[in-house]
């Protein structure tokens, strides 16, 4: 089994982890309530998806 030969320095660890970046979600605007929402998903604030409405999609905790 391959094992590391040397302890990895804190500096190297942190340099590697500095590349862990989150990307912003690409949001679109709900056509009914103008709130931001993800594409291809029912709106979390009003539940609208196209002309249909899904009460299950509504999130009070945002």
């Amino acid at each position: 089994m391959a094992v590391p030969k040397r302890k990895m320095s804190r500096s190297n660890t942190r340099a590697r982890r500095s590349q862990w970046k989150a990307t912003p979600a690409t949001l679109s605007t709900c056509s009914k309530c103008k709130a931001p929402r993800l594409s291809h998903q029912a709106c979390p604030s009003c539940g609208a998806y196209g002309e249909r409405t899904y009460a299950e999609a509504i999130r009070s905790d945002a």
Binding site: L38, Q41, A42, P44, R52, Y54, E56, A57
Partner: peptide, 16 residues
């Protein structure tokens, strides 16, 4: 099938 965003407990993507 309509996607309705992730579930609260385990963040599983949910759908109706």
């Amino acid at each position: 099938i309509t996607k309705i965003g992730p579930r609260k407990g385990d963040n599983a993507p949910m759908a109706v």
